[in-house]
Amino acid sequence: MNDLSDNRLVKLFAELKAASKKTLLPFLSAGYPDLETTGLLLDELQARGVRACELGFPFSDPVADGPVIQNSYAAALEQGATCDGILDVVRNYRSGGGSMALAAMVSYSIIYRHGVNEFLETCKSAGFDAMIIPDLPMEESQAVGPAADRLGLCNVLLVAPTTSPERRIEIARRSRGFIYYVSVAGITGQRDSLPEETIRGVEELRKHVQTPVCVGFGISDPQTVATVCQVADGAIVGSAIVKRLMDAKARGATSREMAACAGAFVEELITPLR
């Protein structure tokens, strides 16, 4: 029987809390523009001081994602990205001494096809620390939660702006590692500003649960990272990073150049948290 005390993500948040620090969680579309670049990006992010990272498994029908991540997924699939390929990248990262906490952001469609237990076991043994399943709400999460607990994987649940206060607490109690606080009702992607309610919502949630809270959706610059982290334990940035990779690719950048470009942007994002 495993427990979560050995989990990299859990340990990271405990350490951050002790030091009164906050963290940035960059999101990468795994396999975009190709798996080799994803491997380089993991090393690059670690070198820039990132402690936790989300890897999105490309899916043909991501209903929660905006055009940037959708297009990156479509391109990754076209390039032949598969679950096996992504897991190999993570294995390589770990065997090279990679120490970031890694969360797999995967559609339940993919997990169900592979079989829940088999998929979770493979993710754990490859070196993932957490699962974020955006299309598995609380009511259906029994299919994953106990198995993840058993394996020592955090099953991270999401809270949305549309979620009622009572339900937020219920979800928060079942979430492991952290609570993914979705800042806007809508799909992933850049927004001009962060809704006021987000700050208030995170503060309110904090009163009821000890689990760390990280905010995602629509965060794209260092100022917003700083604002969010006044109340939250972490800020998740996805589309804005993937967009920079796309722009670099359009300019004809090599894998190394793309990794450096994303790394420089992540460095900007992380600076206010130092």
């Binding site: 949305a160 979620t163 979705v182």
Partner: peptide
């Protein structure tokens, strides 16, 4: 929400209240 083993609500949390 189920018909035998089939059905359910596999959607993002944002849609669950709706």
């Amino acid at each position: 929400g189920y018909f035998g083993p089939y059905g359910g609500q596999f959607v993002p949390e944002t849609l669950m209240p709706a």
